[in-house]
């Protein structure tokens, strides 16, 4: 009887922790779709609470870093570079913790590379030392998780912002995004982490639009909305912009 009670107790705790994690993940998606900083902070706060429970800390650290990544982009939109640096610094610290517990987690290396890419955008001269770091981390990410759609997504974003003569460019970015979409299609429905599919289509749309291929851009934006119907950036900003052109 005691064993049964203990098992039920354990099931309750594990199940609640899992549902909290799911809830927090959904909260991030919602915050991102609504472009709502306060909701993103709430999602981050939820992960912080889950972290103290001590289960799957590496994954929780990863998700806090992911929140930091989104919050960093919010600060860049507001041109608050001082706060953007704070999120980059915290994001890197969270990912370091994550890798201390799970050093083979390729997704964490890719997100780290994205943070170093962010550092370069804040201080272009730091590209001299942060550029190779970012490249090395992306290579590590590919080494551990070569079929992760998010790694190709983050790689594509880095390539998009890197001039062609330094190994980046639009062409390579599109190739990476195509791979990203391909791997998203192959991804198991309950895979974790599970973010980024909308971003992949959105970035394809942005690049197509910049290349003047408005038809393709519209097709990708629609696909983005199919993946995430509530995405406000696509529905309220990008699509109307495209229609005006």
């Amino acid at each position: 009887m005691k064993k049964l009670i203990a098992m039920i107790g354990l099931m309750v705790v594990l199940g609640m922790a899992q549902s909290q994690l799911d809830f927090a993940r959904q909260k991030i998606d919602k915050a991102y779709n609504r472009n709502n900083e306060k909701e993103m902070l709430e999602a981050r706060a939820l992960f912080e609470r889950i972290l103290t429970a001590g289960q799957d800390r590496w994954l929780v650290n990863y998700y806090i870093a992911y929140c930091d990544y989104r919050l960093y982009t919010f600060q860049m939109q507001k041109e608050d570079t001082r706060q953007a640096k704070v999120y980059i610094k915290d994001g890197l610290a969270q990912l370091k913790e994550c890798l201390n517990e799970n050093e083979n987690f390729g997704e964490a290396y890719a997100l780290m590379a994205a943070f170093y890419g962010g550092s370069i955008s804040l201080n272009p001269i730091s590209g001299m030392w942060n550029g190779p770091k970012s490249q090395k981390l992306m290579a590590e990410a590919m080494n551990y998780a070569g079929s992760s759609p998010r790694i190709f997504l983050l790689k594509a974003i880095n390539q998009f912002y890197t001039p062609e003569k330094y190994g980046g460019g639009v062409k390579l970015a599109m190739e990476s995004l195509e791979k990203s979409i391909h791997y998203f299609d192959e991804q198991e429905p309950d895979a974790i982490p599970a973010w980024g599919k909308t971003d992949a289509f959105t970035w394809m749309g942005i690049i197509s639009s910049r290349q003047g291929d408005h038809e393709a851009a519209k097709k990708y934006y629609e696909k983005a909305l199919l993946a995430e119907p509530e995405n406000g950036w696509v529905s309220h900003v990008l699509l109307p912009q495209l229609e005006k052109q």
């Binding site: 039920i8 099931m11 309750v12 594990l14 199940g15 609640m16 899992q18 549902s19």
Partner: peptide, 10 residues
């Protein structure tokens, strides 16, 4: 199943 049971219990 565990998840559903946990939610019900919770």
């Amino acid at each position: 199943k565990i998840k559903k049971l946990a939610i019900v219990l919770a």
